[in-house]
Nucleic acid binder design. Structure first.
Lengths: 192, 192
DNA sequence: GAAATTTGTTCAATATAATGAACACAGCAA
DNA sequence: TTGCTGTGTTCATTATATTGAACAAATTTC
């Protein structure tokens, strides 16, 4: 969204579609008829509370009145060879492959984690609201978040919040492979 | 969304997370420091234009400031045995295991797809904005979306929009296994 | 320690969102 | 024609969002 949203036309479109009159919408929403007219012709900058009332009166969600720009559809193919070089985490024995391309960073990221025997991968807390989805492809691992430990074996799936310190550990004598998805609810950006 | 949104706390949370001061955010957004303070303490009903400026200054989308508080934190462990029975798709030869629990349906869903040799899985268009993330765990598959076909081999990763008719096909003579994540951008809601 | 800088908060003034009433223009009935 | 009922638009007033400056409290600097 590059420009301030043009809510006026959206509201009018939805109102027309439902064959509602300004008087009726005014009654249903609690917003004066005059205000509705001025908003629809983009003559004023309405308050979010007012727009919310209108959305309620129309029976739609607030998001529907704000311009939801479709945004460019993305399609990324990452061949195994083009894949970004494996990261080393300082902790030895863990190989991290980033499957998702850089353009998706901060939105949703996909990794393959390869654990040697007897090694672990600690993680700092991510941004609040972030979630991780683990699928064990080979071997078994122990996931500890806070004071909560879960043991996972091949084929198991785990979804958990990761805004606290957490660690993934392979305590067994054989290697383990984990598919991991990190999803950021609100995209983060550079620090000051 | 049943009550008018509490944008104040959301704005403050994001600003704090990025260690931004009111002065800095004021410069970046073009909204006065005084206004920012009052908005964060929910003392006024800001204009949509103002909130949009703030979102721009924070580098986030307008939706992120209006979003209702992120519900209860979830943690799901799905053992391989407890996993929902494999779905049959009508098309023979494709086994679909749903890793993510029912509570996550419509938000983000995780599957393991097992393809026998020479079989395919067609899919109706999902909701607009939906994306799929494929990781090939074994074998190779061909993904066709619209008139666009991509060939993937073991270890490859693919991210693509799936609001059009698309199909995943295993043309080879050996079975294939695919890890698939479906992510719905806007939660769908009831029509009027 | 005191002064200077930075934090976020309130204050009075201004710009403007929001309102109810009056308005203009339609279609429709006598 | 003359009303009459409904549409959406402007008008004058009120309510309030927004601002720059002044403010107090915490932190840094000398």
């Amino acid at each position: 969204m590059e420009n301030p949203p043009m809510i006026g036309k959206n509201i009018q479109k939805i109102r027309m579609r439902n064959s509602l009159t300004l008087n009726v919408l005014s009654e249903r929403s609690g917003v004066s008829k005059a205000m509705l007219s001025q908003i629809e012709s983009d003559k004023v900058n309405p308050t979010v509370a007012t727009v919310w009332k209108i959305a309620r009166g129309l029976g739609v969600d607030l998001q529907d009145l704000l311009d939801v720009e479709a945004g460019p559809k993305r399609k990324f193919v990452i061949n195994r060879s083009e894949m970004s070089a494996s990261l080393d985490t300082g902790e030895n024995g863990v190989m991290i492959k980033v499957l998702s391309p850089l353009e998706m960073a901060g939105d949703i990221e996909v990794y393959i984690l390869q654990f040697d025997s007897k090694c672990s991968l600690p993680s700092e807390p991510h941004y609040s609201g972030t979630e991780e989805y683990l699928t064990v492809l080979k071997g078994s691992v122990k996931v500890t978040a806070g004071n909560n430990t879960t043991e996972l074996h091949k084929g198991d799936f785990l979804a958990y919040h990761c805004d606290i310190f957490h660690t993934i550990e392979n305590a067994s004598a054989s290697p383990a492979v984990v598919h991991m998805v990190v999803r950021y609810y609100q995209q983060h950006h550079q620090k000051r």
